[in-house]
Amino acid sequence: MFRKILAANDGSEGARKALIAAIDLAKKYRAELHSISVEEHLPHYAASLGEVLEAQSEANDYFKKKNEEAMALALKEGLSLHTHVLAGHEVGTIIQFAKDNHFDLLVIGFMGHSKIFGRIWGSTSHNLTRLSPCTVLVVK
């Protein structure tokens, strides 16, 4: 049923649960397994290029560590995980990536925002579920 699975990985505990579910499904369906991490905290209106480069470098170090952990987790189950790190807005970037690469399933963690924020803007998981071009599994 699922040939290409994409797990969203922001390094949080929720994302870890989503990855474990994605690994399980990929094993079951013999699907290709990918993960995506989005750098969304590059400083806006920076005064120097160095500020952006350093922020990017810090984010890369963080995601490098998280992706190594994720790959080790997949490898334990005999799977190869293809990791991707992109910059941009979290929702827009994941949706665009899922569209461009024709994924069948997007697996995401349930990310809790404050009630007020959630009511006004909708949570990340809510927006991903609404806008995704493919089936979405939200892991709680």
Binding site: H34, L49, L53, Q56, S57, N60, D61, F63, K64, N67, E68, M71, S80, L81, H82, T83, H84, V85
Partner: peptide, 15 residues
């Protein structure tokens, strides 16, 4: 590319 600097994220199966 602008600075050509910093470390690479490559590792494992990173695409």
């Amino acid at each position: 590319a602008v600075s050509g600097s910093e470390s690479s994220l490559k590792g494992g199966d990173s695409h």
